[in-house]
């Protein structure tokens, strides 16, 4: 037998891998267009409900909500801009692997994926990207319609949008890896649902989904500023809308990167331990 050809597992390999996986993912999802759109719209409901609450609350206060503690002030148009942007960014950073892992572990569906020379996270991440490509194309008109209906206050300059792009990308990767860590929990317990709900609850407050972080009560606001949830949720949104003072931008980016590194380390550890565990109960 001849010696096997040398394989390189570098950036070019992964670029090619992702290209192929994304193509496949798009092809699969095109067959489930309708379900995909429903999944996508699912993400709209939360921000819209939050917006409705804050709109109603602000009308009770003559149109403006002011947090006396930190001077943050929001008018109807600001709320609309915040939650509309949150809706779009929320969609871009969405991830659902935790829901599937339990099934994979229980049925052994993970095994064929383990035979490949790359870890399954790459195939899964590619699928996530395919989903966003497909649904964004379909949901774009819906966003435009909503923007027209809700009349958000536009950001003061286009620069903030440009600056928000890397923040959004980081947020998407961050949330993806954090969610994947959560998915790994399926190796140890069959009750991922409750844990997922806990994550969702904490994220709702600390990530800025139920209210802009500036309107949270003091202690919750402090907690939010230090948590990883801000970087995955509210930070890119606030940045895009130009609501973050210049001197706070760099530290917030650093926090994103820091938490991403933590997530990556956690993922590696959990994946290793999880595989052992998976193999202990029988793959």
């Amino acid at each position: 037998m001849s010696a096997p050809p040398e394989r390189r597992w570098g950036a070019r390999y992964f670029a090619e891998l992702y290209r192929a996986q994304i193509r496949q993912g798009v092809a699969v999802m095109l067959q489930y267009r309708f379900a995909m759109v429903i999944w996508g719209v699912w993400g709209f409901v939360g921000p819209l409900v939050s917006l409705a609450i804050w709109n109603a609350a602000s009308s009770a206060r003559g149109g403006t909500i002011v947090n006396a503690a930190n001077g943050a002030s929001f008018q109807r148009g600001d709320f609309a801009a915040y939650f509309l942007t949150f809706m779009v960014f929320g969609h871009m950073t969405m991830s659902w692997d935790a829901f599937e892992y339990g099934w994979r572990v229980r049925t052994g569906g993970l095994s064929p994926l383990l035979l490949r020379p790359v870890d399954p996270i790459h195939a899964d991440a590619a699928r996530n990207v395919s989903f966003k490509l497909i649904t964004s194309a379909i949901l774009l008109p819906v966003w435009i319609l909503l923007a027209w209906l809700l009349q958000p206050t536009p950001p003061e300059s286009g620069w903030s949008l440009l600056l928000a792009t890397p923040a959004l990308l980081l947020a998407a990767v961050m949330r993806y890896v954090w969610q994947y860590c959560l998915a790994m929990v399926a190796f140890w317990t069959t009750r991922v649902e409750a844990i997922q709900q806990l994550y969702f609850t904490v994220d709702a407050f600390l990530g800025g989904r139920v209210a802009p972080l500036a309107l949270l009560p003091g202690w919750l606001g402090v907690l939010a500023a230090w948590s990883p949830f801000r970087g995955m949720g509210a930070f890119p949104v606030e940045l895009a809308l130009g609501r973050i003072p210049a001197e706070q931008i760099a530290p917030a980016f650093l926090a994103q990167v820091g938490w991403l590194v933590v997530a990556l380390l956690a993922y590696r550890a959990l994946w290793r331990l999880g595989l052992r565990r998976y193999s202990a109960v029988g793959a």
Partner: peptide, 19 residues
Amino acid sequence: LVWDLPAMDSFLVNQAVYQ
């Protein structure tokens, strides 16, 4: 193999996976 697609699509992915 991916259930919802023709086998050829899975082959192409394997081409990338196994370079």
